[in-house]
Each structure stands twice: as C-alpha cells, then as structure tokens.
Design a protein around this nucleic acid. Structure first.
Lengths: 348, 348
DNA sequence: GTCCGGATTGGCAGCGCTGCCAAATCGGGC
DNA sequence: GCCCGATTTGGCAGCGCTGCCAATCCGGAC
C-alpha cells in the first residue's frame, strides 16, 4: 500500500494545474467564458438549433480552455430521454452474454448511448430487483434476457413505459420488442440431425433447467425431435451447477457409467460439449465412431477442436446489436427471428 | 395524457392495463398520497434522518399503491454523489474482462451502486472518448484497465476529480488506486519454470503487443526470465489479430514450420495455448514429451483438458471486486498486489 | 432610408429530488 | 398546567441543464 501519487501528472504541459477541489465547471462558466448565453452553449454542444460559425468556434474554444465536461445527469433531467440503456443478463460466466453485451454496446455507442448493466445469476427475484434499480435511472430502453419474468418484473416493465427488448428467445409471448431465435426449434433440429445420421441411443447432458429457461426449451425441443422419429433419450444427466466445461466432462462420465452403450450425446451447450470431448480424449473414446457429440451456440473454440464440434450457431452478437438499434430508433413492437445455423462439424 | 389514475396499481396482482402515456409518478405524488411532506418521503425512502414508524408505514403504503420508482437522475443532481461507477474495458471477447466485470458488478451491487460500461477495443483514442462519455454521468468512480493511457485520458481523469482504479497491472505508476498483479513477473516466472523443467528451445506465440500492453509486459518478463538462465527465445510468432484459440492454433503451426525443433511453447494466454494444444492433438504431437505448452490466466478450460494446462492463474474476479469496494468506500490511493499463482499442470 | 422574414441569440422557468432550516409536536420534570 | 429539549415534519431554494419564447440582428427588396 504505498502512495501512487498524482504529482506524476501535474507534470508540465498537459494537465491543468488542479482539477480536484475546485468547483466543478458548468455550462454557465462556459457561457461566461465565451461571452454568449447559456442556451447558445447548449445548442452548440448538441449541434441542435442554429448558431453562427463564429459562435461555434468561440464556444468550442471556451470548452477546451476550461476542460468542460457536460453533465448528462442535469441534461437528462431537463430534457426527456436519457441516452442510457439498461441491460439485464443472467450471467457473465457463460461467454454467450458477454457476446450479447458486445453487440449491444457496439451498436449503442454508434447511436451515442451508454449501457448500464446488471446481472441476475438466473434468479427471477434478483431480476425484479435489478430491473427496479435500472428503471430508477430512467433509461431510454431496457434489454432483458429471455421471455420469462415474474409478475413483479412484468408489472414494473409495463408500468415504467420504457421500451423493452427481450433477447435470445422467441418461443412465447413478448412484452414489446423480441429479438432472438427459437430454442425449441434448435433442440428439435439437433435431435433430428443426430437421428438422421443414424444415431439411436442418444443421451442428454444438461445443467440446471429450472433456472435456465432457454436450455429447458431446447431440451423440450430435443425430446420432441426424437419423438418425431420414434425415439426417446437413451439416458439423461443433469448437473445441478451452472453450465461449464467441468460440468460437461463430469456429466458425460456419469452418464456413460450408467448408460454405457450410448452412441451420441447432446449437450445443453458448447462448453458442456467441450468438456465431454475432453472426457472422450482422456479415455480413448473415439469420436464420433464410438460416441457422437453435439453442442449448442457455435462458439469459436468448437470450430478449432481437432474435430470441429457439431453444434448450432446462434447469432448472439447480432441479437444484442439488433435490439440496441431497435431501442434507440424506437420502432413498433416486433418479433425478430434471427434464426440459427446447424454446423455439421466432425463430432457427429 | 389521459388520467390513467393510480387505481391501475390498486388493481389486484398482475400488470396494470397501461403504464404508457400517463404522467410519471413523482415523489410529490407520493407525498400527497401519504399526506406528508416531500422531504419526509425522501427521508423514509433513503432511511436517512428521523421519522416515526407510523410515517414510514404510510409512505411505504403510498409508494406501493402508486408503484413509484424513485428518479435517481434527479436525486443525483440534487445531492452530490451518483452511485454510478464507470467501467472501461478493452474487450468483451476475451473472458478475462467479463470476469473482471463480474467481480466488480457483484461488489457494486452489494454497495448499492450500478455500473456503466464502455469498451475500447484496445484503442487508446477510443479510451479517451469513452472516458469522456462516462465522466459526463458524473460517476462516483471509474474503473479502467491497465496503467497506460494517452495524455488526454490522463488529463480528463485527473481533472474530473473522480476516484480512479486501474486494474490488472501494477508494473508502473498509477493515478490513484491500482489493483492487480505484475505481468512482468508472471512472464518471468513462466520462463524460469520452463527453463527449470529442462526446456531449452522455447518459443513464444503471441498476439498484437502494441495494443495489449499487459501482454507486452509479460513478453518482456518472459525474455528476462530466459536471459537470467542464459537463454533466448528459440523463435517467435506474433499474429496480428487479437488473441483467440484460432490465433494460437495457427500461430503454433506457423512457428513449428519455421522452428521445427522447438521443445516448449509459451503462449500469451490460455486461449492461445488451447489452440496450440488442439494443433498438437490434431497432428500427433506428444505433449509435453515432444512439445511443452504454457499459457496464462488460469481459465477453467485449461484445468479440464485431458492434460491440465500449465499456466498462471490470475485473480481477475477478485481484482474487479477489490477495486469496486475501494472505490465505494473511498480510502486513500493505494496499490494492491493480488499476486498470481503458477499452476504446474501436465503440459509442461 | 425603411420594412420584412429568417437566422441567431439570451432569459428564464422548470425537470424531480435533496439539504438546510424553521416550525410543529411530543414527553417528561417541576 | 407550563416550560424545555429532543424528535419529527414541512417548506423551499437550488443542483446544471434544456425547451420555449421573445428579443435582436442581418441582408436584401422596395
């Protein structure tokens, strides 16, 4: 714990002599410095309304001289919209959600918006709480994950009047804007693909389905897909933990111990599938000869395995970006189905 | 503006019919409904100052009846502090930064703060721009990544007077709070470990070091470590792209083509190392017999490979949490070295 | 020189809340 | 029954900005 020290910067040219302790610089200071009215400064800074080129230069010079940073808190209060978008995601552990964030923040930046984020840990009560917190910032819009919310959350969302985009799922009724793809259909497509390749003793390795509603929908779709060709899962293993490479590895090990003659394993996502692949490598199980593997999400890592993973690629980044743009531009309530892509890979 | 009226909420359980178009509910409405003064409502809602139990109940009932959500924009403007922390990270693609975010948001939530995030893509000019945007929200503090910033960024940070925490690096002078570990020392430790295990022809596979300053410091430390035992890299491969599994896989392939007698490969991080491992698996290269692999970060996936990856575990989540807590509680400027842990694994 | 429409500009009332201060109320002790 | 200090409460002036409206200025047309 030693002193880092700011004097490192007081150094010569750049930094203005102080910055701390001084009364913060306001728009009124800039107006005085530039010898124009406050409204004129405001107009110039927002490039809104009309003003002469001379004025613009004067104002900009004053801003630079004083190092003025507009106060958006005040600006938001005075005007209406807030140029803030709240983003609610269940987790930051699964790369899917950072991907969503990435798409959203990139699109928001283009539109001049900022994002406030909150994480629910797949807990609907926490979701209700964080939605409340986010709404207290009077955001221009809210991005939430999935279509399932508890009554309190729905009430708040609707009552607030802010635009809401629900992401990564379209299997069910939405509140306003919905951007995603069908998890049910993805599960079904996976099952049909595996069945189509001749696998018959297909097992399922998943994680906590009571919390992750989208994984539950994929699972339901998967069972439907199998049923359509007269099959049923040859065995299932659900780990209680969140999805992870570890859960996939141990899950497959456990399932194979109970159902040794499995010929294919469908995982609730690519992380789990990668874990399963590692288990196969470690135990000399030939893939896909002895056991086929199928994932979900289409992560990069799957593409780069010695045998590319059979999986379904989901447009997560695009979903974030699309939702962000729709919220900023404020169109009508819609459902945008971005679809998904089945990647055959080499593990099935 | 039709008068929706408050009975919308009185309505039993679910969603009120409307919510849009109605004049938003303010603290004054609550005061009127509860038949108390505005300041009293404010005091009750913030549990600040004194009021009777009766009053609390009256106010809380009114809040519930009206479905009032406090406006923190107004609250922030009226008071001083903002209970917002800005977080600036270079990327969301590398799981390291979501991990940092995870630690920070969890700690912030406990303290009743919200986080606003911005992504720089490892570009210092973008960093300067997003720091400006974040400061315009008058955050209580700012978390930035690394110690290297361009002069404009430093000027803004210092002039703003907000607390700043610089994360994931302690090799250099900081502005205020610094939380992280020594990347240089990590690189050095990696080199010494490999040399200590008898490897002599050690190659380096890295990504764009001009943008990722911390990776550059590890690289420098790595060279120093080798030099200490009279060695120099037996070969190097730098891919121009950001770090990724793909870059690691192709990087190792390229390096082996040029330097076939390599006996160990040091990667700029675990993603790259995983790619290298996949290359070895795909081409029958025995690990570590024919080629040893060493990564950086200590990701879960490395631990679960058939042979656990030799790497260095970094406390990223802890760094985010520590920084967040220090910012919220507002102690003195300090440097917190969280250290790192060398994991021997089985690939070296 | 005068008048007119459009381009510029400044003044000022809020946005919804908090902080300060004064007023009202309460609960003994005498 | 009255006084005093402590507790509880309400009023109101901002916080820094934007939006509205009125004032001013400019350059021709008459």
């Amino acid at each position: 714990m030693d002193e880092g020290g700011n004097e490192a910067f007081a150094a010569d040219d750049e930094v203005p002599r102080d910055g701390t302790g001084r009364r913060p610089i306001t728009l009124a200071d800039v107006a005085r410095e530039a010898r124009v009215g406050e409204s004129t400064v405001s107009r110039v800074l927002r490039s809104h309304g009309s003003f002469s080129e001379t004025t613009r230069a004067r104002v900009e010079a004053a801003v630079a001289r004083l190092g003025y940073v507009p106060n958006r808190i005040a600006g938001t209060l005075a005007s209406t919209g807030s140029r803030l978008i709240g983003i609610v995601i269940p987790s930051l552990t699964n790369i899917v959600f950072p991907d969503l964030l990435r798409g959203a923040t990139a699109a928001l930046e283009q539109e001049g918006f900022q994002s406030v984020i909150a994480v629910t840990d797949y807990d609907q009560d926490r979701e209700e709480a964080v939605v409340g917190s986010l709404l207290s910032w009077r955001p221009a819009g809210l991005i939430v994950t999935g279509l399932e919310h508890n009554p309190g959350t729905r009430r708040r969302l609707v009552a607030s009047g802010v635009r809401v985009a629900e992401l990564l799922d379209i299997d069910g009724p939405g509140l306003d804007i919905v951007v995603g793809y069908s998890n049910r259909a993805a599960g079904e497509a996976s099952a049909r693909h595996l069945a189509g390749r001749g696998y018959r003793r297909i097992g399922y390795i998943g994680h906590d389905l009571t919390r992750d509603k989208r994984a539950a929908k994929r699972y339901a779709g998967f069972r439907e897909g199998l049923a359509q060709v007269g099959l049923a899962p040859a065995g299932e293993e659900r780990v209680a933990s969140p999805s992870s490479v570890e859960a996939g590895r141990h899950g497959l090990e456990a399932l194979l111990a109970r159902v040794p003659d499995l010929d294919a394993a469908y995982f609730s996502n690519d992380d789990m599938a990668l874990g399963g692949y590692f288990h196969c490598l470690a135990h000399g199980i030939t893939v896909p000869g002895r056991l086929a593997l199928f994932g979900y999400n289409g992560l990069d890592v799957g593409r780069l395995m010695p045998q590319p993973l059979a999986t379904i690629r989901t447009p997560r980044v695009e979903a974030g970006a699309t939702a962000a743009r729709l919220l900023c531009t404020g169109g009508p309530a819609t459902v945008v189905d971005l679809g998904f892509e089945l990647i055959e890979g080499a593990t099935a």
